[in-house]
Design a protein around this nucleic acid. Structure first.
Lengths: 144, 144
DNA sequence: TATTGTTATACTCTATAACTATA
DNA sequence: TATAGTTATAGAGTATAACAATA
């Protein structure tokens, strides 16, 4: 293994750690895991817990917990799937939509703000490109 | 806020989440927080808990916990700073060095392996560049 | 039998608060 | 008073195991 690659791994791990801590601290009032699910439901529409878990590469049991928390907060609702009664369809409530909109407007949504403020348009483009590389690292091997 | 930037924020948050979960799962036997501290001690030499916390942009209390865990595992040792008896100097033990070396050799150190296997040299270079952008996002504002 | 979901339990990571010891 | 460190407590995030309901 080249020293250079080992160093890159170290720096990547460290930068990820710092960014995740910062994200958590800035938060915008909603835990990251919940915010990500709201975003996905808004983007792709209602989905089952298994679907959501697969999309995030997460265990269904873990996603069930997040959906439980979102339900308790009134941000999503659940109804049985009429075609397959094992499944539960999760969808945004009006309160969930309102929360998403609030996060996206001015004072909330720290990450969007930071991207706008700290980076130039060209830098955001480079970041978008690198995100594809990071996504490949996160995928199981055969997805290469 | 441009829709494009909002979308980038969503994708960044999602990719970070997936990568962090993958890192945790692949693990190599050592929790991420502990591995990062071992790497830093190896790279920069002995340091106090406050130094380590500042370097990772983390509360000293949180770092104290990680150092406590590493001490319990026998991977670091602590001694009082002779010049300032409030301070505790943390340094790698032989077992800590051995653990680091094991992680860096063949079967362990999943992230290094993945960087080598999944990315080309040119892609690793693009990733290294983008890491600087991510680091800027993680920094407090005045560091711009 | 296979799939979907739930509940119980535990571990990692990190934060805040309250404290002691030293400068 | 300010700084370094510790301990207690809590919450977020996620995993595994064991289970029930449905296909």
């Amino acid at each position: 293994m080249a020293l250079e690659t080992t160093t890159l791994a170290y720096e990547l791990r460290e930068t990820l750690g710092r960014l995740v801590r910062r994200l958590r601290a800035e938060g915008g009032g909603l835990p990251q895991a919940q915010a990500t699910v709201l975003d996905r439901l808004d983007r792709d529409g209602p989905a089952s817990i298994s679907d959501l878990a697969a999309a995030e590469r997460m265990r269904p049991q873990s996603m069930a917990q997040t959906v439980h928390d979102l339900t308790a907060a009134g941000l999503v609702s659940r109804r049985p799937d009429p075609h397959d009664r094992r499944r539960t369809v999760v969808e945004l409530t009006d309160a969930g939509v309102a929360t998403l909109n609030a996060r996206r407007s001015d004072s909330e949504g720290w990450l969007s703000e930071a991207l706008q403020r700290e980076l130039s348009a060209a830098e955001r483009e480079r970041l978008r490109d690198a995100l594809g590389l990071l996504a490949r690292l996160a995928e199981p091997r055969q997805a290469r």
